[in-house]
């Protein structure tokens, strides 16, 4: 299985993602520099924190540009929760700060945080069975309409649960906290999507 680099620049629940990958026997290393971001076989952007703080860190460390180049070069990226949101154009959480812009939609504050398990369905992703429940924990979300350039999956209430473009994917849910279904998702991502 491909070696995974987990972005470690001071935000995110890095240890949980590492722990989850280790239980499915995936070799994993922390990446902290633009060059390491470019060199990783698979890059995971973890997901706990605030949009503005994360983007400031990504910009200051010049890792934002490395992630954008990685996407342009068609290298595999997975963003989880906040790691997904920073790949959008922007979020109302920090409206003056631009996101990475890999996904051409925005995130907005939800009426109340979404905390719990939801089923996810998709008509546009092949090879992935998303008929189980995944754990969500977020205050900002997107209900962007489907776009031909994206594969998307949604929760039953219409919010984006997942989007992909090229070899870049973002999940609003936390696979590392979704028990066996989350591990199955990570295995699918690494064995099929990242192939």
């Amino acid at each position: 299985m491909k070696k995974v680099g987990i972005l470690d620049i001071g935000y995110g629940n890095i240890d949980s993602v590492i722990g989850s990958l280790k239980t499915i026997k995936v070799p994993v290393a922390r990446v902290k520099s633009p060059q390491a971001v470019l060199d990783a076989e698979v890059l995971i952007l973890p997901g706990v924190g605030s949009f503005g703080t994360a983007m400031e860190l990504l910009t200051k460390t010049e890792i934002a540009a490395a992630i954008a180049k990685r996407h342009q070069d068609n290298q595999v990226i997975l963003g989880i929760c906040l790691g997904f949101q920073v790949m959008s154009r922007r979020s109302t959480e920090a409206p003056d700060i631009e996101g990475l812009g890999i996904f051409n939609f925005e995130f907005e504050r939800l009426p109340r945080p979404q905390i719990g398990w939801k089923s996810v369905s998709s008509k546009s992703l092949s090879g992935l069975t998303l008929d189980h429940f995944y754990y969500f924990n977020h205050t900002y979300g997107s209900n962007a309409s489907s776009d031909d350039q994206f594969g998307v999956a949604r929760t039953s209430d219409g919010l984006l649960a997942l989007a992909s473009t090229g070899r870049t994917m973002g999940t609003q849910f936390h696979p590392e906290k979704s028990q066996k279904t989350g591990k199955a998702f990570l295995s699918w991502f690494l064995e099929d999507f990242a192939k």
Binding site: D15, S16, G19, S20, H174, K177, S178, Q179, G182
Partner: peptide
Amino acid sequence: DTNALRSISTPL
């Protein structure tokens, strides 16, 4: 150890 904590795959 830290592995025991971070390998918990349920929201904690």
